[in-house]
Write a protein that binds this DNA or RNA. Structure first.
Length: 252
DNA sequence: ATGGCGCGGGGTCCGCGA
């Protein structure tokens, strides 16, 4: 089973890239963020996949597409969070949570909203037994966890994505038994999944690691490999997303 | 292409992203 997380920065602009990604890497489950489209206008990306779409006009939006049957689905948290940033699905015995976390800001209203979003997510996780269940959280967390996750620690220290409270949120997932599979496989390496369009950052390898695949220990038993597809970000045409697709394979 | 932003809405710019 191959699962991919990819912040597409508009699915309509990235349709060809997404379709090639699915074919070239034999993706079974694709979790997308920033689809930037209403559900009714979401394009057909693959005739063998069914999709759960949680979109809106212009901004944000997530979608989870699968070649396997989708046994359970839930788009959005209960209650107040109106922006489409969360999809839960149960696929092939794996509880899959696809998130697009708010960016936040440096301790303003948007920062509070980001904290609120993660509080809702941890509340949702209470329904699982994280010691026994196969749970996977993937997506754009908008958090750069450690110094290895930013291209320049001096620049990013004290900036949004790399604030102490944000680092603590990522640590809290690990404290709850989740394994950060990119970091597990590359413990000492700077690995990035986002390169700002501005400043030709990708050509200087000046990036951030904002996208994660977190899995419980029970699921990690079946982990085979992980690929961070930086080369897709480096191509000129068609225009890539500013984020990099990440693919994990499991023996399931 | 050694580059220096791209997207959507509804416009010939603006807000947003991180």
């Amino acid at each position: 089973m191959k699962i991919c997380t990819f912040n597409v920065n508009s699915i309509r602009s990235r349709l060809e890239i997404v379709q090639n990604l699915i074919d070239d890497y034999s993706i079974d489950i694709l979790c997308m963020q920033e689809i930037k489209v209403e559900n009714k206008d979401f394009p057909l990306i693959n005739s063998n996949m069914q999709c759960v779409i949680h979109g809106q006009k212009k901004l944000h939006g997530v979608a989870t597409c699968s070649t396997y049957p989708i046994d359970e689905k839930k788009a959005g948290f209960e209650g107040e969070l109106s922006e489409p940033r969360f999809i839960y699905t149960l696929i092939n015995g794996v509880h899959i949570i696809n998130i697009y976390a708010p960016l936040g800001d440096n301790y303003g209203e948007k920062f509070e909203y980001k904290i609120y979003f993660y509080n809702k997510l941890f509340e949702f996780l209470k329904r699982f037994d994280l010691k026994k269940d196969k749970v996977l959280i993937c997506g754009d967390f908008n958090i750069s966890h450690t110094a290895l996750d930013v291209w320049d620690e001096e620049i990013w220290d004290g900036e949004v994505t790399h604030l102490p409270e944000e680092k603590a949120i990522l640590s809290k997932f690990l404290d709850n038994g989740f394994i950060d599979v990119i970091r597990k496989e590359h413990p000492d390496e700077k690995i990035f999944t986002f390169y700002d369009y501005r400043g030709a950052k990708v050509y200087k390898n000046e990036g951030l690691r904002l996208d994660y695949i977190l899995v419980t220990k029970e699921l990690f038993k079946y982990f085979k490999n992980i690929e961070v597809l930086t080369q897709i970000r480096r191509k000129r045409k068609p225009t890539p997303s500013d984020h990099v697709p990440v693919v994990a394979e499991f023996d399931l």
